[in-house]
Write a protein that binds this DNA or RNA. Structure first.
Lengths: 340, 340
DNA sequence: CTGTTAGCGCGTTCAA
DNA sequence: TTGAACGCGCTAACAG
């Protein structure tokens, strides 16, 4: 059957092998695996039969080399452990898959690793990138220089115009703050995210401004988006406010949950009777019976859909302008806060 | 400066461009970017200078074509939303990165998508794969046929010998069950995972056998590993046992958490006074103040480390035998169960 | 140490 | 509709 191969170990049949087996030329095989091909039905069948017999799959690497399209997209995410990103990642890969695009995943241990990651991104000649990590203007510029389209996820190009999809922090926080203020709360506290988080800062700024606009002051404590920091932040705020705190605005759900647990267990408070807590994101645990966090749910489906669509568009037409798409979040009333 | 390029749009400089710029041959450039190269210091500098000026990065695609090493590894995960896998994925990509290997991520929406995924895996000529999804014997055989090493994560090759890393379900469940039995519980219930989960079935079997061995009977209800199914399962078991249930063994932490919330909120029970609940995995939320689930923590760090090591080893030496590595989990006492 | 040469597997002209 | 020839960007002998 199979001719003995003089080469060393072959990892897979090539289009030449298939061509020989089917008694046609290599280019016939190539055409056979391309969509708008012009191949005689009989020839096509012979080729496909041979291909099946030899277990032939076109080498995407070689294809990429010649077509200058790797069909690879880089997804760069800083902290996969964020509880919010796994859902995003799953959605993105599945949507990209549906478009015939493969995902090269880069997950950063530290923000400082970005440059090493980009190095690899260039080497693999990805067709585009979706980035949920902080990029300097120079790093963003590098994408432009190389003609690699980027779509930023939940952040915008700082100083550089870049395509992006975001969830509207401002209107979201405004809704939460207005609800809390109308709910007759007196002493407000905010738990910010880490300083290097774009959305974190945006959310806190929005909340603080709105509070100020409504004539309320507030204390701000920094957390780092995880459960433990919600607990720690609550303790700190209780100390600062001499236990008078009765409304807590957290930059994400996970810290809100940490704060709720801490309020109940460490301070014996009732939520929301004694303390109202609101979050942001709408992650799974936010809807758990024990929490039912009042929060803003990001429309992840629509956002990922938009991100993929924008990227694919820009891969086709690199000259497209850097549109920003902003999606409104949905207020989940929950039961962790007394809103008016 | 840069010579005008007659070609259409170039996506990046090639080694020829660099060679011309530096006044050397193309192969000199190639060597310059390889580790054990023999290049004169002066030449090397000239080349690196030219490369920097032209923003040259070796084309990994072309390299892969010729070296037959793509430096790509496929990671195939069925449900990224599992809350346990994001951590695993982050660990794996970072460890692979450290080895100079890039990750091609495949996330399955449905188990039936495996074949399409494998199709792409073959096309990209990955050097290996780490799989946390159910594979048929034929699918596993396909890897062997193509000489693509695989390491299974938390499952073993069913019918086919394959390298794998697992957390020991059996000893873990035994420890939990023994503790519960010695804790004087009377009516046992088990919440299983979905039928197509390897670890799910293994854990339930282990727990059931141990209970039987100790002369206890139990009722089993199936869940699907998520929070809501923990709640649903508890309701069902309370019905079945006429509310006599006082020890609940869940196939994972998320269902345990769902059950705990349900017990407290829907049934007004105290955990663990009225009902003991144990889980498996040791995911983040299991340690939250509100839950403190008594569970078995998987040694994710050691497991991912082993998985990557085994895979890399097998990429180097494909003839290596299909070792199975089993890691013991750590019993986290928690406070959701009265263990002896 | 360096340059020359020959492919890696495939898509893509261009004639036939 | 088909096949011959070329080249994508690079590595790996081999000769100098």
């Amino acid at each position: 059957m199979t001719k003995s191969v003089s080469q060393k170990v072959r990892k897979g049949a090539t289009s030449y092998d298939v061509a020989r087996q089917a008694g046609v030329s290599q280019s016939a095989v190539s055409r056979c695996f391309k969509k708008g091909a012009s191949v005689a039905p009989r020839t096509r069948e012979k080729i496909l039969a041979a291909a099946r017999e030899l277990n032939y799959y076109p080498n995407a690497i070689a294809q990429g080399l010649i077509t200058r399209r790797s069909n690879l997209v880089a997804i760069i995410i800083s902290n996969l452990t964020n509880l919010y990103y796994p859902e995003v990642l799953a959605e993105l890969t599945q949507r990209l898959s549906a478009q015939g695009i493969r995902v090269l995943l880069f997950s950063l241990a530290a923000e400082s690793d970005v440059d090493e990651v980009l190095d690899q991104v260039w080497r693999y000649r990805v067709d585009g990138a979706i980035v949920a990590a902080r990029l300097h203007p120079e790093q963003l510029a590098a994408f432009a220089d190389r003609g690699v389209p980027v779509v930023l996820y939940n952040r915008i190009g700082e100083g550089v115009p870049v395509a992006s999809v975001c969830c509207d922090s401002i209107s979201g926080e405004h809704a939460l703050v207005e609800g809390l203020v109308e709910g007759e709360h007196q002493v407000f506290g905010i738990v910010a995210g880490p300083a290097d988080s774009y959305v974190g800062e945006e959310r806190v700024d929005a909340a603080r401004r709105k509070l100020q606009e409504l004539g309320r002051s507030c204390a701000v404590v920094r957390g780092n988006f995880d459960y433990a920091s919600g607990d720690a932040a609550l303790k700190e705020l209780m100390r600062i406010t001499d236990r008078k705190l009765d409304a807590l605005i957290c930059a994400n759900d996970l810290m809100a949950i940490g704060a709720i647990d801490s309020a109940r267990i460490n301070f014996g408070l009732e939520v929301p009777q004694d303390l109202s807590v609101v979050g942001f994101d709408g992650v799974g645990p936010a809807t758990w019976l024990a929490y039912q966090v009042t929060t803003i749910r990001q429309p992840v489906r629509r956002m990922t859909e938009a991100a993929v669509a924008m990227l694919v568009e820009r891969i086709e037409k690199p000259e497209l302008s850097p549109e920003q798409r902003l999606f409104a979040g949905e207020l989940l009333p929950g039961s962790s806060a007394r809103l008016a």
